[in-house]
Design a protein around this nucleic acid. Sequence first.
DNA 1: GCAAATTAATGATTTATTCAAG
DNA 2: CTTGAATAAATCATTAATTTGC
Lengths: 183, 183
Amino acid sequence: MEEGMSGFSVRARGGCGGGGGTKCGRWNPTNEQVKVLTDLFRSGLRTPSTDQIQKISSQLSFYGKIESKNVFYWFQNHKARERQKRRRVLVDEPKDDGIHFSCQDNNITSTKHFSEIYNYNQGSEQPERVKETLQLFPLNSLSESESEKLRFFAEECKENAAFSYNIGAEMDHPTLDLRLSFL
Amino acid sequence: MEEGMSGFSVRARGGCGGGGGTKCGRWNPTNEQVKVLTDLFRSGLRTPSTDQIQKISSQLSFYGKIESKNVFYWFQNHKARERQKRRRVLVDEPKDDGIHFSCQDNNITSTKHFSEIYNYNQGSEQPERVKETLQLFPLNSLSESESEKLRFFAEECKENAAFSYNIGAEMDHPTLDLRLSFL
DNA sequence: GCAAATTAATGATTTATTCAAG
DNA sequence: CTTGAATAAATCATTAATTTGC
């Protein structure tokens, strides 16, 4: 991928001595290793001590090549990325407010329950990216150009595409201004 | 399927506000609504903010009955199911494993360099707590349940997830005693 | 053809995690 | 250590598809 380099890159590090794999650019955790590390993380471990690191590394070496520093970095990175993920959520978001629903009684609680539920925002997939990417939103297809609309539709919802495009034609809807600007 | 329950049942929804259909069991999106939601999703939107939800809902109401919460749920479900789909693919298609760390030595100044870096050890986050919490470590899950393993993997280390998750199965490892005792 | 029966989709709720504030 | 916020995952439940016996 990014390696393409000619020069050193891969390992200017002294290590990687022995021959073999040669792919000693960086640690490549096995699934087992990741599993264990993740479980440790989930069970509360965040910044293992030197001692803990050594022991973990030792245990994990059973699954494949690994060094203490890999464990150390893994925790550093994992912790940081989890935090980052969380932060992104906080940053991009909020403005809540209330939105109520029509269903009034029903134990399910509407306003409260719901606001509790979706009173957040960005998920974990495209953090900021969404905002930028949305620029690319194929708006044109949303408010006009029915034919193009249908084209998309045919792609996305083959089965539902059936009657969709003539509705727009006969109903003369309100421009459905679903584009970045309104988002 | 196995539901057969007897008990209570159908929801005691009282709401469903205004008159009309009475068939207010649950929202039934029109093709237009699905089309727009799908396009938004495709354009990158995953977890719309409250504000976005309101606007989307407002626009979509032109096509038929809809509430903000429907939009919210739609995105939640769609996102989750797309993820699920992807995950399923990964599970079904093991991919190669290419596990061959041949590099052996490579101590990379390990001890020295490394110890300098993380030789600060505990103190900040979970001091003792770790020790207690680790008791709960779900060891059992270390060697089996490949699917779940993969799930974790896909989540945590998307890019590194490339290889092997069948190793555990064929290697019959030594109980990996990662628990309090060793930490 | 057409319903009852069965299965597939998907809307709506609940539960479990994680980080971070208190 | 406790609690609140914000999800993602799991699950429940209802509606639409589809199948099946007549």
